[in-house]
């Protein structure tokens, strides 16, 4: 349960209830209409579920099934060419993890992990810094805030093209550095190019989410701490950071889910089948376009499992109470009380 200080969580039964009311509100529409509620709720959710089932669930299940087969032309044990599909069970996975395809898979796996760790860390730090700056009151703040968010609003394909142009051999990046760097072919340089473009594009988004979190911290807390003699650094470390933590955790979680699936930025910025930047999504795509449906489906399944695992571990470790957060929340003026409750509960 995410809230420790709030009176509305006075009983376990109440706590599990959607939008559970403020203290003292009586249980509503409980008896009699429970079946009606369920029916209405399922009517409201079913269009969404239908769309998700068709476009998200079916393909992942199809991929899971397909990954158990190999297809296309190959030689059988007697040296004859065979066509069509053959059931291989987990053979494709074994090939990917330990066999002939292992090198390319692990390379893509580490690229994906490296990009995710580096970009999300940079985005969290820079986004936090940007939010702190944007939170200050000064003239033209609205304009600055809007302009800082523009990269995020720009289509990924466009920003990838833009950075490809900047990192071109005769582009402005080399001119500014005064040094010829082959961004698209040197391993480290191309990684740096992808990371720069990704951080440029999404740090503002993290900044926006953190800014939103900062804006609900009441000024009195900071004033009280100042009166008590706490310096700026201490105030940041002991007040601001714990209070924006829920916002930051949610931002980082969603950013991680996106970064692990990174595709079009390296695809357009650097190109296909470059070892230095090939991510798991790109690997699956490239195998599928080469009509290796079995391996492609296996890569997609492994990536999905990896993303789900990371999300699960992250939620467990950092106590991002993503489900309970809304369940227990109660609107109140001084947002600080419920915030503190959330920050301390883990």
């Amino acid at each position: 349960m995410s809230m420790t200080t709030d009176a509305s969580t006075n009983s376990a039964a109440e706590a599990g209830k959607p939008g559970s009311g403020p203290p003292g509100s009586p249980g509503r529409r409980r008896s009699g209409s429970a079946a009606g509620t369920a029916r209405l709720a399922s009517a409201l959710v079913s269009p969404t579920l239908l769309v998700l089932a068709v476009v998200v669930m079916y393909p992942i299940l199809a991929a899971l099934y397909q990954s158990l087969f190999v297809s296309g032309q190959r030689l059988d044990a007697q040296g004859f060419v065979v066509e069509g599909r053959e059931f291989v069970g987990l053979g494709t996975y074994a090939d990917i993890l330990f066999g002939p395809a292992a090198e390319r898979f692990w390379n893509a796996f580490w690229n994906t992990t490296f990009f995710t760790v580096v970009t999300v860390t940079l985005e969290a730090v820079l986004g936090m810094a940007m939010a702190l700056v944007m939170h200050q009151a000064f003239r033209g703040r609205g304009l600055v805030r809007a302009s800082v968010l523009v990269p995020w609003a720009i289509p990924t394909a466009v920003s990838a093209l833009l950075w490809r142009w900047i990192f071109a051999p005769d582009g402005v990046a080399n001119a500014v550095l005064g040094h010829q760097v082959l961004w698209s072919s040197q391993a480290l340089a191309s990684k740096i190019a992808v990371i720069t473009a990704e951080v440029w594009k999404t740090a503002p988004f993290v900044g926006l989410l953190v800014l939103a979190g900062l804006q609900v911290i009441s000024r009195e807390v900071h004033e009280a701490a100042t009166v008590d003699g706490a310096g700026a650094w201490r105030r940041f470390w002991h007040i601001t950071l714990p209070l924006v933590k829920p916002a930051l955790v949610v931002a980082v979680l969603f950013r991680m889910l996106d970064a692990l699936r990174m595709f079009d930025l390296p695809f357009i910025l650097i190109g296909q089948q470059k070892d230095s930047v090939e991510t798991l999504s790109m690997l699956a795509f490239s195998e599928a376009t080469n009509v290796h449906y079995g391996p492609a489906a296996a890569y997609a399944t492994l990536l999905f499992a990896y993303v789900a695992l990371i999300a699960f571990v992250f939620v467990k470790l950092l106590g991002a109470d993503v489900i309970g957060e809304v369940r227990s929340q109660v609107p109140r003026r001084g947002g600080i009380r419920s915030r503190r409750g959330k920050g301390s509960a883990r």
Partner: peptide, 30 residues
């Protein structure tokens, strides 16, 4: 999912979150 209380609500919420994790680019061909 917020104002109605019914059985399986949490499961639905988690399912919707999991839908966010599916690598769609990798699933272009299916």
């Amino acid at each position: 999912l917020t104002r109605f209380r019914f059985r399986g609500r949490t499961v639905l919420l988690v399912m919707i979150l999991v839908a966010q994790m599916v690598p769609v680019e990798a699933l272009t061909i299916p």
